[in-house]
């Protein structure tokens, strides 16, 4: 008997002996197949005309041509890219800075209280956050009180095209800076005490220690987070946008996801909406692959 058939027979024996393990894995696999794989395969609808009765008709790239010749779509593309990348670029440094500050707070009680409070918004739904922020930003709310004190005139930030993206970024920060700092904080706590000791003996001050010891130790975590966030950067999600959307700012913060929802489910242009979603999925996939291979080349570490 050749080694190869022996090996494959062994595998077969192992599979048979451990059938119960496959049975245990089955519900999870079944869930994904029933809900997700089916949905993903359904995206071929982008190449068909939807028919309520009878077979869908294959139309090739017709819906993509329609999509690309819709001026509205390019505005939405632009919105998606702006919102995604502005969030990514502006927000990323804050959890790092917050973690460093937390690790530098001498007072144990203040530190613990700040942690308990700052992690909390991560667990609130966007509906709730929108409810809180509507009051927070209202004409006689806290933010406008401060704005008036420093010499501004009270205004509605939620219905102005110029400020709504700022509101999205700020509310996202309010929700996630605390929680996102956890990964960096644990990286800081993992730094060996000896390094601090040595630095202090050399007469390094607090800022020098942060710059030369703490920050370099945070780089791997920062890169990991950036890679993950790049991969999902176009998944702006529905919840935040839908809850901060109003007629006055719709044209500025309508993104591919919400657009596909509006024309697909609130309207009934199923194939057209699918084409938009599929276009986004392909862009996302390209982004993930590009970040994966770039980071592998630069740091030897990929997304998986």
């Amino acid at each position: 008997m050749s080694g190869r058939t022996l090996a494959s027979r062994n595998t077969w024996v192992r599979i048979k002996r451990n059938w119960i393990l496959y049975a245990m894995l089955m519900p999870a696999i079944l869930y994904f197949v029933a809900f997700k794989v089916q949905s993903i395969m359904g995206m071929s609808l982008a190449f068909y005309d939807y028919r309520i009765v009878g077979e869908n008709v294959f139309v090739g790239l017709k819906h993509f041509r329609d999509l690309f010749s819709t001026p509205m779509f390019w505005q939405i593309m632009k919105n998606t890219l702006i919102i995604s990348f502005v969030k990514l670029i502006i927000i990323t440094p804050f959890p790092v800075a917050f973690a460093i500050l937390l690790s530098e707070v001498g007072n144990g009680k203040l530190k613990k209280l700040t942690q308990v409070v700052s992690y909390l918004p991560h667990f609130l739904s966007w509906v709730v956050i929108a409810g809180i922020w509507f009051e927070f930003l209202s004409l006689n709310g806290v933010v406008m009180d401060i704005w008036e004190t420093v010499g501004g005139t009270r205004m509605d930030l939620l219905t102005s095209k110029d400020t709504i993206i700022g509101v999205l970024v700020a509310s996202e920060m309010w929700r996630s800076v605390g929680w996102d700092s956890i990964i960096y904080l644990s990286a800081i706590l993992a730094i060996s005490e000896d390094l601090y000791e040595a630095a202090r003996l050399d007469g390094a001050n607090r800022w020098q220690i942060i710059r030369n010891i703490v920050l370099p130790h945070l780089i791997p975590a920062i890169i990991t987070v950036l890679i993950i966030n790049m991969g999902v950067v176009l998944n702006t999600g529905y919840d935040q946008i839908l809850n901060f959307q109003n007629d006055a700012v719709l044209s500025r913060i309508d993104v591919i996801d919400t657009y596909a929802y509006r024309i697909g489910l609130e309207g009934t242009r199923y194939s057209f909406s699918t084409a938009a979603s599929l276009f986004k999925s392909i862009l996302s996939l390209i982004l993930i692959l590009v970040t994966h291979f770039t980071s592998k080349k630069l740091t030897g570490k990929g997304a998986w």
Binding site: I15, F32, A260, S273, T274, L278
Partner: peptide, 26 residues
């Protein structure tokens, strides 16, 4: 002792990466 583990893992990661359109979910 689970043969084919990496295959399943690849499947799960794919499930995490791909986002179907809301029309398809519907």
């Amino acid at each position: 002792e689970l043969p084919g583990k990496s295959l399943f893992m690849a499947f799960f990661i794919m499930m995490m990466i791909f986002e179907p359109g809301i029309v398809q979910e519907y």
